[in-house]
Every structure is written in structure tokens, then in C-alpha cells.
């Protein structure tokens, strides 16, 4: 066989594999949009469910998910960022640090239902927060910590050493150096990681299953100690627990969830693209 023919065949195989990665995403999106598009209207997005959730809207589930996601980032971003600063700027390379790094890598591999059970045991039962937004948000925050820490560390590590060097040479202390010469230049990367983690938190079902999610609530939550409905769990319920529900409602709910996750990811991608353009040092 001629070299050029071989090369063509190789290229075709590589290209096909690439397409096979993209195709499922397009299929999933396509099917959800096709089946759910007509179910989405203002009323669907802004009213309470009716008729045993067969009719009405999904407003409380959207609100619940937004509450959960925003409260979880309140916990995970500061803790994750500070941990990343410690690991990247202060920690010496010793056994303890290596163990911590190993733990972080392993944490990101733990399946989400384990986080759900952990949240149930720690926050709901032991700390007596009950089944509540607080418990759910804390559980999601812990699940997201590895992502936030890893993204923040990468962002910090991508700030050139020369910035720190100049900073010290100008008489800045270690903390001043981090605060003025490292963090400001790492923030876009940190934000990107945080948003990606939010998107994951918005889509997960298992961690909120035992810690916050309600089957049905007639009203919106009043405080973080209330239960809440959430989109992924709501979708699970209407797909498995409620007979005679229209396909359109199910797909429309899925479309809203996917829409939220996708728009978060797109925001993250845009921030990252801007950062790349600006970053020439």
C-alpha cells in the first residue's frame, strides 16, 4: 500500500473517532430539543406544578436548583481557593502534601451517590441540619471541592514565577505577593473552574437525593433550613414515579436543566477564551 493511502486511511479513522465523540452530544441535545421545545413557555417556567405534577410549571424546581447551586459555591469557592493557595504557594513537597494531593485526586473519583450518603450522615443526621437546602448545598460543595481546588491550583501555577520574584524584590511579604502579584492574574482561571463546578452541581441528582430534595412542595422554601425541589430530582420523579405524564413535560424539564448547565459551561468557555487572548506574559 502506498504511504499516502495509508495516511488517508489513518486520518479517516481518527476523524471518525472524533465525530463519534461529538455525535452523542448532538443526538441528546437534538432529541431533547425536538421533544421538549414546545413544552417550554413562560407559564411552564414560572408557575407551580399542578395535577400531581402532570400540569403547571416547574418554577419551584428551577428556584431550588439555583438556591442550591449558589449556596454551594459560597462554601466551595472560598474553602477550595484557600486550600489551593496553601497547596500551591505554601506547602512544601513532603509526605503530608503528597497525601493531600492524592486525597484530592481520589475525591474527584468518588461516585456522587457516596457523597449523598455522606451528606445524609454528616449534615442531615449528625449536625442536625435536617433534610434542607443547607445540607444539600454543603454536600454539593464537598463534591465540588476537588474541582475547585484543582482548577484554582492550575490557575495559580500558571502565573509566572517572575511575578513572584519581582514582588519579593519590591519588598512584598509572602501574603502580599499572593494577594497583589499572583491572585489578580489567576482570577479568570479560578472563576472558570468555579463555574464548571457549578454546572456539575446543577446537574447532579444523587448528592441531593437524601439531603435536600423534596418530591413535591406546595410553596417555595423560606430559608436554607427548608427542603426544596430541584431540577434533576424532579426530572427523575416525573420520569419514574408519575404515570400518565406527557412526554413533552418530561423533555421540557430536561431541556431547562440541560439549558442551565450548558449556559454555565458556555460562560466558562468564554471567560477562558478571553483569558487566553489577554495572556501573553
Amino acid at each position: 500500500m502506498k504511504t499516502t493511502t495509508k495516511q488517508k486511511i489513518a486520518f479517516s479513522i481518527l476523524f471518525l473517532c472524533t465525530i463519534m465523540v461529538v455525535l452523542p452530544v448532538l443526538f441528546v441535545l437534538g432529541i431533547i430539543i425536538k421533544n421538549g421545545w414546545h413544552g417550554i413557555n413562560w407559564q411552564f417556567l414560572t408557575t407551580m406544578p399542578k395535577d400531581g405534577m402532570r400540569g403547571g410549571g416547574i418554577y419551584p424546581a428551577i428556584v431550588g436548583t439555583l438556591y442550591l447551586v449558589s449556596l454551594s459555591i459560597v462554601f466551595s469557592l472560598p474553602i477550595g481557593l484557600l486550600a489551593a493557595i496553601y497547596l500551591n504557594e505554601y506547602a512544601k513537597d513532603n509526605l503530608l502534601t503528597r497525601l493531600i494531593r492524592l486525597a484530592i485526586v481520589n475525591l474527584s473519583g468518588v461516585s456522587s451517590v457516596v457523597y449523598g450518603l455522606f451528606g445524609l450522615a454528616l449534615f442531615v443526621t449528625f449536625m442536625k441540619f435536617g433534610v434542607s437546602i443547607l445540607s444539600g448545598a454543603l454536600t454539593l460543595a464537598i463534591m465540588n471541592l476537588p474541582i475547585v481546588i484543582t482548577a484554582s491550583r492550575e490557575a495559580l501555577a500558571s502565573v509566572p514565577y517572575s511575578f513572584r520574584e519581582v514582588s519579593y524584590s519590591l519588598g512584598l511579604s509572602r501574603w502580599q505577593t499572593i494577594r497583589h502579584s499572583v491572585l489578580p492574574f489567576a482570577i479568570p482561571g479560578i472563576l472558570t473552574g468555579a463555574i464548571l463546578s457549578l454546572a456539575r452541581a446543577a446537574g447532579e441528582t444523587a448528592p441531593i437525593l437524601f439531603t435536600v430534595a423534596a418530591f413535591y412542595l406546595p410553596k417555595l422554601p423560606d430559608s436554607i433550613f427548608d427542603q426544596a425541589m430541584a431540577l434533576p430530582y424532579h426530572l427523575y420523579i416525573i420520569s419514574t414515579q408519575i404515570p400518565n405524564i406527557s412526554t413533552e413535560t418530561r423533555y421540557a424539564t430536561a431541556l431547562v436543566l440541560v439549558g442551565i448547565v450548558f449556559s454555565m459551561n458556555i460562560i466558562a468557555v468564554v471567560i477562558r477564551a478571553r483569558l487566553r487572548k489577554r495572556k501573553k506574559w
Binding site: 509566572p160 511575578f163 520574584e165 519581582v166 524584590s169 519590591l170 519588598g171
Partner: peptide, 16 residues
Amino acid sequence: LRKKVGMVFQRPNPFP
């Protein structure tokens, strides 16, 4: 000390 003794480096390294 470092306020009193400034330093200029090999590669120009202004902050962005």
C-alpha cells in the same frame, strides 16, 4: 531591606 535594595531582572518582567 528590599525597599532599600531594589532589583532589576534579566528578562524585562512588567506585570500585565
